[in-house]
Write a protein that binds this DNA or RNA. Sequence first.
DNA 1: CGAATACTTGATTACCTTCAATACGCGTGG
DNA 2: CCACGCGTATTGAAGGTAATCAAGTATTCG
Lengths: 199, 199
Amino acid sequence: MKVTAPRSVVVLEGIVSTYKTTQAGRRQAMAYHVPGDVPDLQSLHLKVLDNSISAVGLCRVGFVQHDAIRHSMRAHPRLEAVFWRSTLIDAALVREWMLNVGRREAYARMAHLLCELITRLQVIGLSSDYTCLLPMTQPELADALGITPVHVNRTLRDLKAAGLITLRSRRLTVHDWEGPKAAAEFDPIYLHLGSDEAE
Amino acid sequence: MKVTAPRSVVVLEGIVSTYKTTQAGRRQAMAYHVPGDVPDLQSLHLKVLDNSISAVGLCRVGFVQHDAIRHSMRAHPRLEAVFWRSTLIDAALVREWMLNVGRREAYARMAHLLCELITRLQVIGLSSDYTCLLPMTQPELADALGITPVHVNRTLRDLKAAGLITLRSRRLTVHDWEGPKAAAEFDPIYLHLGSDEAE
DNA sequence: CGAATACTTGATTACCTTCAATACGCGTGG
DNA sequence: CCACGCGTATTGAAGGTAATCAAGTATTCG
């Protein structure tokens, strides 16, 4: 029964993923975290760790002591709602992935993941013209999509063949945004990017 | 773009599920909520609704105005952490379902869902001797497991044939807890039932 | 009591997995 | 500079789990 250290991770560069594994060792990614995210902010209130974190490709992370977070929340009470909201958005991303894994076939699933990444990276200035760096290997994509690495390969091949994407040496471009978006049924509402705070 | 009403649901009796649907109409349940749960507490901080709620069988629910929740949090500051933690546990349940749907085959998936239900209902006194009421129909189970209703039927048949469960007229019994638990790789750690609050 | 929904089972199909073998890319060292 | 080695990517063939199609039975509900 692992217990979290009294600190959380902050992603500074690169992409980090949270995941869980079955006892048989099969791995399922829960979400990707981009620079600025705190993948395990939940550990502030849940002492027992129920998922793991790993780097996807090279990345740089920082650590924040929980005490420091608590202190700043006491100093600025509105911060608590901000952090809380952040964990709620994380949960919303996981739910969308769940729909993806449970009810879309591999082709749409992959398209959806790529649309999400492009959109999120664009927001933080790491993507423009529907192009970004895709640091993850095919086995890592497989863990995010709930399929096998071999099938990831075939799915990417199909997406390329359909002209929806280009992917060469870690460089992803999504062509004709509306096409992939439709294939993926991608609707960014679940990312809660707008300033749609309640009240 | 749906916007939530300024209130949340409280489950009083029965089971409620949160779910999302693809544009093609395929439905994936995110979690089940038992009496005492607040399935959409997240709407306190996320104005835009990204999932839906529906009753699973007959149930009784109440509503709480967000203003009332905010008021009580101001009156009792420790409440904020309690509610926040509650949303974090909800997220943990969704993550476990994600692992279930993405990386376990139907048989283990079903066993896992049943183990979770029995465990959670036991905690609130709605199950004893590994027996409980199972209000959901097979199509509803299918939505929770990411499979088809037909396959739910076959999977239940197999579980019965293996002697792991009995299910007749909405009454579920899990025999020999260790067997199903092993088949499902069920480890209740993710339910955060202990008083494992951080700090 | 009739219609609608849920359950059950068989036959066929399809998506994805598994197994296997080969090719590619890239950093290292001869 | 090129050979080597390792991780990653690619492709083929065969197999399996679950989906789809279909038809009949049982239950529930109005």
